[in-house]
Amino acid sequence: MGLENWSPEGALTTRVEELLNWGRANSLWPMPFGVACCAIEMMGTLSSRYDLSRFGAEAIRFSPRQSDLMIVSGRISLKMLPVLQKIWEQMPEPKWCISMGACASCGGIFDTYAMIQGIDRFVPVDVYIPGCPPRPESLIDAVIKIQELVKLERLDSHA
């Protein structure tokens, strides 16, 4: 890798936090909570043209127990929110959440009895993506912002 010239002793020093965060940030395992048209853009982002694996987040897990990034893409109805919360509970710490698109972030055009007016009222959201639906570039930008958040993690953050 060329590192041997840079470090003749064959050793590097870093902090454990830095090493863990570096690994986590570049190996996010998303839980795709895709419930509407935003999910189609999410699939497009994951596929070959936009290729989210360039940012280490291509290992989509449909089990919340194996993931650390929930991407809520679509409108969340009254009936779906308990499901969303159960899945969020089942994800192990540390975990992050992207609210993708207008509906997940604020209800979008659906200001009705049946629609949650923003999932951040009931689950913590780290990054919001505007758009209806957002373009894949926006989702990639959100993943990069999540990576920046991951790099701020401390060992005692979830003690």
Binding site: Y113, A114, R121, F122, P124
Partner: peptide, 21 residues
């Protein structure tokens, strides 16, 4: 809810969920 005298934005049921921090 499809009765015409039902309020469009509901009776607050969309806000009655636990909040996760």
């Amino acid at each position: 809810p499809l009765r015409k005298d039902y309020p469009l934005q509901g009776r607050g049921e969309r806000n009655q969920f636990p909040r996760y921090e």
